[in-house]
Amino acid sequence: MTVLVILFVLGVLTGVAVAVTLSLFAGRRVIGADGRPGRRRGPGRIVLGLIGLAVVALLLAVEGGWFYANAKFDEIDRVDVDVDGDSVLAGSDGGTNYLLIGTDNREGVDGNRADSILILRTGDGPARLMSIPRDLVVPRPDLGGERARINAAYNSGPVNLIRTVQESVGIPIDRYIEINFVSFADLVDALGGVTINFPTPAIDEGSGLNVQEAGDVELDGEQALAYVRSRKYQEVIDGVPQPTSGSDLDRIVRQQVFLREVLGKAGSSRNPLHLARIGNALVGGLKIDNHMELFDALVFAWNMGQLDPVQTELPVSDAGDGATVVLAPEAEGVIADFAT
């Protein structure tokens, strides 16, 4: 509905601008000395007419760009978040909570893989970005309250994951966005690379990561994918590879950095040709909830280009089995910040 209203307004403005411009170039009706009607076109009218032409061209460009953006937006896959005709998205009272799911559907692996579960909070002060560990154990609504890994909720479908985040973690969700890391490699190439800061050179033979220098390094699509996939990340210190903790939390931080940088760079572009390439690359790598409109998506893209989200850590503690974690008592305050 928002899109139709905007297109209607643009159409009306274009029509008015065309009518005014034609009137200016036609000139003012006058009666000549011989009594015959005629038109007078002074320099002022010509200048105003040229300005009118520029306005018409601008409006047509905006309208054409909007039609193109809407056509691309319609190509993005939708995720049905309705149950019995009603959306499961609860929505927050203050800001806007985006549930961002990073998936890695690599060749030869069956099923869905939610490699990262992130919540971006905007609209009520500084933007915040928080990761939810995949191995967090919480009561699962789809299992009748049985405790299980939150990551497994995604394997049962996005609706189950949304409900789990809302009911068991306690954070209401406004928008759902799913990002395929494999397809995002194409987006990185469309952006001309993405810059990641490395404290030291780094390698991972398993993922193919091979960064030979420290500092800000521009990664292409292939190396960016190797960076977010890295499970055996090693820092190269004095020429010797040193294993890091290899924890799921470390990998989540890397994926968080990647998403912030690539979405920020995509959202900050204003070049129409560049935006067209970005749009083509984005279409294959995104899924969004079926209630999101183009205007919502543009707000999200604009925010990602302007924001530098504060990294927020969700406090967790070991569940006692060395493989899973549970919410720590300190998590209550962090969750409240995202829930109100």
Rank of each mutant, 00 (worst) to 15 (best):
D216S: 10
T200P: 00
S317Q: 13
A328R: 04
A54N: 10
T244H: 08
G305I: 04
R45P: 01
Y68Q: 14
A319D: 13
L143E: 01
G64N: 03
V47T: 13
S92E: 10
R277H: 05
A214M: 06
I196S: 07
I6V: 14
L60I: 10
L263S: 09
R45Q: 13
E146T: 12
A281Y: 04
R41W: 04
F300Y: 11
V16I: 15
I101L: 15
G239P: 05
N112H: 10
D82H: 15
S230P: 04
V211H: 08
I162A: 09
L120S: 03
L263K: 03
V217W: 08
V30W: 09
V236E: 03
I196E: 04
G333N: 05
D308S: 06
L225N: 12
Y176I: 04
Q255P: 07
V137N: 02
Y233V: 01
V211T: 02
T103F: 09
N105I: 13
F300E: 10
N105S: 14
D110M: 07
L99T: 14
V79M: 14
G264R: 07
V211C: 05
S269P: 00
R41K: 12
A19H: 13
G206Q: 11
G125C: 00
I179K: 11
I117W: 15
V109E: 12
D74M: 11
L136A: 05
F181K: 02
G145E: 00
G65F: 10
I119W: 13
A90N: 07
G94R: 07
T340Q: 09
N303K: 09
T122E: 15
G64P: 01
F300A: 09
I117A: 12
L22W: 02
Q223P: 02
G15Y: 11
L298K: 07
G144L: 06
A202W: 02
P272K: 01
I335W: 07
G239L: 05
E313P: 06
A297D: 09
R254T: 09
T96R: 14
A54D: 12
E332D: 13
L58R: 08
T103H: 13
V228A: 11
A61K: 00
E332Y: 04
T122Y: 03
I252D: 13
V228Y: 14
F198W: 01
V16N: 07
L89R: 01
A71P: 00
R277M: 02
M292G: 09
G264Y: 10
I203A: 04
L129Y: 03
L58E: 10
L275Y: 05
G284R: 12
E261G: 04
R128K: 14
V262D: 07
V169I: 14
T195H: 05
M130A: 12
P243W: 06
